[in-house]
Design a protein around this nucleic acid. Structure first.
Lengths: 345, 345
DNA sequence: TTGTAAGCGTTATCAA
DNA sequence: TTGATAACGCTTACAA
């Protein structure tokens, strides 16, 4: 069938087989108008028979276009991202683009490396959930004219695209909802301190407290990595401190991520607390698992699929030159009332 | 800071700035022994100041190595893959490789396109969950000498690598477990018909039935796509047929994917059936959500992280030439007993 | 230790 | 409509 050690099939080789010049083959393969229909058909047939596939490295080097986009995310394991990735993937499949996927692990240094990798690989653009909206890494993107759509948090620049679920509104809605349910001492379980999303999330929380004349308590604001384990850990630690020194009291918890909320559930189960009897809990993102928790988690729905669709379309339009203006899309989270919040007097 | 319209920084440009030849720069950047320490340091400093980053397309074209691996999966949205992707990503980050990620959507045609894309992009190897173990697509991989590690199902070739969770054992364990709990009429909710995993899964099911002298019933074997929605749909349809014609009876369900099992939960809730009172259910994969279902889903744990680690390491070793032999790793699923199976008389 | 030059597979320009 | 040629940015003989 396939001859071993067969010569590499490239345009030059096809040209030799077809008895024409490489440029003619190139034109035929690209369906260039400057090529007779007849030769096109002939070349295409030969290319197919030889199982030719183009060398995208050479093509990219030559054309300065790779039909590739980069996706840089903070944690490939967070279920939050999968609907988004799937949505992007579907769009790319349709138009023969591919994606290079990187995980920054919430580390600026790793993020920088990832951005440079994208530049080096000549991707046509990136979709990035930045670690920090004010970091040098954003400058790196801008100064290198790398087309980008920011998701998750928004750098403070004019000439950028973003598709942003407003975290400030999210925490505001959550906090207000709890307050209206009688809660005054609300623990904020925030993400990593350096994460811009955490800062924004804090803002909405404070805003809501202020609106209802509740004095914020520094001890009720905690920062941690976004994972089930960390949620579990921190809640156990809080519980321990609480029972000993008894300096922090709260009746409700807001967390930046459903994962943290799940960790709280785990810890509560172990410690023996009841949700929402002892503590009310609100999560964020509305990942699959939340609706099956016991009690089902009240959370804020993030429109993950739309984030993917919008960001991919914006980026692609810009790459294809169909749209020059910068697009700024702000999506609103939506409260999903389930069973983890209790009304208290 | 950055001069607008600045000249592209490449090796040639650095050479000019440094007053040396391009090859000297190339050697310096690659830490080639044939370059004086002094010039190396000088070049490196200049490169840094100029914010040089290498053009990986050119490098790849020249070296026939791209430090890129391709990942081809059947459904980017299936939580089964998250841990695997994350594990692969962590390993790649450590050694400055990147991944190109593609979704084949369980379609052979799309899979073929994805494989060709990987070849065209000159990836150093792929990790693939093939749609069908006997398809022409496998030949495509082999004939093009594309290094590959197969996960999820195993093509019938000698010279391949795979990391495989044995689905036959999975369904056998599940079926036997149900039988030992008194079930005789067991519905098999399988994946898509053309999917090799489905065929293998069926095998273990039949084997267990045979062992206990239970005659298989064709009507109790169903095929469908792996998603919550499809699980929901098919179960509602089965219920409808069942109540009208009453030709199929069963007390337990085995499904190829936890997602299908969740769909069954949803349908049951709506119809009013009790799990495991009316039907016992066993899933497969042990995705995060399963332990929070009500009742918690009894399922077979698939070692997802290990699949990622093993497959990445095998592939990388082979790419780096550290290992020439083909590696075949079979992992065993492990029964996770929870609350969705009831013992009957 | 360094420089020259050719080549990786494409494509755009120019000339025929 | 086709062909020759140079160039994309990098590396590696080979020569100096």
């Amino acid at each position: 069938m396939s001859s071993k050690k067969s010569k590499k099939v490239n345009i030059k080789y096809i040209a030799k087989v077809a008895g024409v010049s490489p440029s003619t083959v190139s034109r035929a393969l690209r369906d260039d108008p400057n090529a007779s229909k007849k030769t096109k058909e002939r070349i295409l047939k030969i290319a197919k028979k030889l199982n030719y596939y183009p060398n995208l490295l050479a093509k990219g080097l030559r054309n300065k276009r790779t039909k590739t986009i980069g996706i840089i995310l903070n944690d490939l394991k967070n279920p939050l991202y999968y609907d988004t990735i799937k949505a992007i993937g579907d769009i790319l499949n349709d138009i023969d683009y591919t994606m290079v996927l990187c995980d920054s692990n919430y580390e600026q240094k790793l993020e920088k490396k990832n951005i440079i990798t994208m530049l080096s690989k000549g991707v046509d653009g990136i979709i990035i959930s930045p670690v920090n909206a004010k970091s040098e890494n954003i400058k790196l993107i801008i100064e290198n004219d790398l087309k980008a759509v920011y998701i998750d948090s928004v750098p403070d620049y004019e000439k950028i695209n973003y598709v942003y679920v407003n975290h400030e509104i999210a925490s505001f809605i959550a906090t207000e909802y709890l307050i209206k349910n009688g809660h005054k001492n609300i623990l904020l379980l925030n993400g990593p301190y350096q994460l811009t999303s955490s800062k924004v999330f804090l803002k909405g929380y404070l805003k809501a407290l202020k609106k209802y004349d509740i004095k914020p308590n520094r001890a009720l604001i905690k920062y941690t990595d976004l994972s089930i384990d960390k949620g579990y850990e921190i809640f156990k630690k809080i519980y321990k401190n609480n029972s000993i020194v008894n300096n922090i009291n709260f009746t409700a918890i807001i967390s930046l991520s459903d994962l943290l909320a799940i960790g709280i559930y785990e810890a509560s189960k172990e410690i023996g607390f009841i949700i929402p009897g002892d503590y009310s809990v609100i999560g964020y993102d509305n990942i699959l698992t939340t609706s099956y928790l016991n009690p089902p988690l009240t959370t804020l729905h993030a429109p993950k699929i739309r984030v993917g669709k919008y960001s991919a379309n914006i980026l692609l339009n810009q790459i294809e030159g169909k749209n020059i203006e910068y697009k700024k899309i702000v999506l609103k989270p939506r409260l999903v009332e389930r069973g983890s919040v209790k009304k208290i007097n």
